[in-house]
């Protein structure tokens, strides 16, 4: 999804560059809070890592392959601000050294692959882990959900930009269908890889996972003979101001899913009509899920096609969020139950 030079019109490229510069500036400020001496090379490593896993193409459907975008992964490992910087650096290096993604499209690419994926990914991650702040399972599930949602959302924003300033005249419905369809599949792969990668790091070096900082326990003090020194008081856990990020991420996700879906269907028969024009459709087979309530990205029984598709997007995102949140909540219940059981056993 690295956009090359000439794909978008000059005004879109320039506005996207302005947004990217503003975003990166904000992140440079924010990153100072996230980075200390020990985590600075982490950012470099995460950048190198995202870069490397973007080389791992994995098959998504017949004849199509996709690669990780890595935004959610970066945000969970090093924090959202540093995460954006990491992706921005990856894209800069790719454009400069590897000619992957155009230099004049750098703003678009940083916006789509960096800012959008990190914002959405981290927002979703916090939302999910909020319900189970002290378990590894919750972090795994949060990672999966975050990555899964971040990819198609990024594809939707791409479609939105395309609607505003694409240099070709293909109907937006076609682009939306193709982009979102393929990227939902990529999102599943991205979700799995992010989940397993975060869980692996969490198991071996939990101190390296930014998103798992809430798992830290308070300190104990001991005398030379090993007897414990009573602590003054249990230190209050610092409450992080996650609500703005959280709400922002969710609102943006839902808005995009709805609005872009709405616009996407402005040519309701996008791909189908073009396919019919060119005779492509004789090869196309109806999808097995086409009859399900959300099949073909529309809600049955809703007359206005545009609203229907927009609604489908919102519903899809909400279901994913609820599913992720629900599993995390269940996991939390279980750990709490176990903790309580352990405590009563110790009392007895």
């Amino acid at each position: 999804m690295h956009v090359p030079d000439g794909f978008f019109t000059v005004p879109v490229s320039v506005s996207a560059a302005a947004v990217a510069v503003a975003g990166v500036t904000v992140c440079l400020r924010g990153a100072r809070k996230e980075l200390d001496d020990r985590t600075a090379p982490m950012a470099g490593l995460v950048a190198a890592f995202v870069f490397a896993v973007q080389m791992l193409n994995f098959p998504v459907a017949v004849g199509t392959s996709g690669h990780l975008l890595g935004g959610a992964l970066a945000a969970i490992l090093v924090g959202p601000y540093t995460g954006v910087l990491c992706i921005a650096v990856v894209l800069l290096v790719q454009a400069l050294f590897f000619a992957d993604g155009g230099l004049t499209a750098l703003g678009v690419n940083i916006g789509l692959l960096g800012i959008v994926t990190v914002l959405v990914g981290y927002g979703v991650f916090r939302l999910v882990t909020r319900f189970a702040p002290r378990s590894r399972a919750a972090i795994g599930i949060g990672s999966f959900t975050a990555a899964l949602i971040s990819v198609p959302v990024s594809a939707l924003v791409f479609t939105l930009l395309y609607a505003v300033g694409g240099t070709s005249s293909i109907e937006i419905g076609t682009v939306a269908t193709a982009m979102v369809g393929v990227h939902t599949l990529i999102g599943i792969g991205e979700g799995l890889i992010t989940m397993v990668a975060v869980s692996t790091v969490l198991a071996v070096r939990p101190d390296l996972v930014y998103g798992a900082r809430a798992l830290a326990r308070p300190l104990l003090l001991r005398r030379a003979d090993g007897s414990p020194i009573p602590a003054d008081a249990e230190r209050a856990e610092p409450r992080r101001r996650t609500r703005p990020v959280l709400i922002g991420g969710v609102v943006i996700t839902l808005l995009l899913a709805g609005v872009v879906g709405f616009y996407a269907s402005s040519s309701p028969d996008g791909l189908e009509r073009v396919a019919a024009d060119t005779g492509f459709d004789t090869q196309a087979k109806p999808h097995d899920l086409a009859d399900s309530p959300l099949g073909d990205y529309g809600v049955k029984g809703v007359e206005n096609e545009r609203i229907s598709v927009g609604l489908a997007g919102v519903i899809g995102v909400t279901i994913t969020l609820l599913a992720g949140g629900g599993v995390a909540w269940a996991a939390r219940r279980r750990t709490e139950h176990r903790r309580r059981a352990g405590r009563s056993a110790a009392d007895a």
């Binding site: 070096r205 939990p206 101190d207 798992l215 830290a216 300190l219 003090l221």
Partner: peptide, 8 residues
């Protein structure tokens, strides 16, 4: 001086 790694 007391210190715990972030993993606890």
């Amino acid at each position: 001086l007391a210190y715990a790694y972030p993993d606890g």
